[in-house]
Write a protein that binds this DNA or RNA. Structure first.
Lengths: 147, 147
DNA sequence: CTGCATGCTCTAGTCGCTAGAGGATCAAGC
DNA sequence: GCTTGATCCTCTAGCGACTAGAGCATGCAG
């Protein structure tokens, strides 16, 4: 019965030690056994579970979505329509984010195109930031966090 | 001398009241005058400054970059090379983020393409998340926050 | 004069970790 | 046996950029 210390698990899964403890704390990982000295002892299933979590995080799934996906995976009886729905939601979110970022990139490029060497008073960048009406298009939404 | 309450300023600038207070707290907005009843009284320059901040935030500039840009704008003597550099950095960050998201989108689409109506045990989505080796390409980095 | 909107300050919560304090224990080398 | 450094433990606080709420003081309209 190969049991892993948290350090070995971290190396095996390429997830940092504090992150593993954090995932346990928020209930994504079940509390592992403990050795007599109170150290965590993980089984090989923990490696798989962490791989799942890590991969889903890389794909931008928020923790709560991952919790749902893990619940689904833990219970093979359940219908997987939920998992498909989560994946579709995630695609939509990614598409929206890409569209936003492309609008922003074009505005930034236009803004930075006219390089100025002079004083800040007639700096294109600052001018462009001061006056939204110079933008070609509206910004759909503020671009922020998530994903 | 048209002085604005924080509520009017919020409406004029389309920045929420608590956000305005927050910007004052972190020093992006100078502390405004106060009426006898301790309420804030803003001049029209606050509207312009907030528009600048809001626009820069929409473009994904982090607060510290905005602080630098505002310092530049406040001091017209200074060279604007810094502003150009910030804009260029921002473009690079946006480009990188777009590239990441496009890789993710293609993986998500591939993952969700095979829709299953069965039990979660043979759900493509969960299977794909369980096994990173099914991915066509490596994920460059975890996709996270900023911008 | 009543009631609601707006204002104030202060604190805590969000998300997903990350960093650090302060201490216990382990493994290896001498 | 002893020292040294790595690893482990728990707990708390911090990041960025707000957002939400408590608890209270005002302002304004009907």
């Amino acid at each position: 019965m190969p049991s892993l210390s948290i350090g070995k698990l971290a190396k095996a899964s390429e997830v940092k030690v504090p992150t593993i403890r954090f995932y346990e704390q928020i209930g994504l990982l079940p509390p592992p056994e403990r050795a007599a000295n109170d150290r965590r002892l993980f089984g090989p299933d923990a490696v798989r579970r962490l791989a799942f979590i890590k991969h889903a995080r890389q794909l931008g799934f928020p923790i709560e979505a991952i919790r749902t996906l893990l619940d689904l995976a833990d219970d093979p009886e359940r219908d997987c329509a939920d998992a498909n729905a989560l994946a579709r939601e995630q695609i939509i979110a990614v598409d929206r984010k890409i569209a936003q970022l492309e609008a922003l990139r074009s505005e930034l490029k236009r803004m930075a195109a006219a390089t100025c060497q002079g004083a800040a008073s007639d700096c294109r960048v600052i001018e462009a930031l001061s006056d939204h009406s110079l933008c070609e298009a509206d910004h759909p939404e503020p671009v922020r966090a998530s994903i």
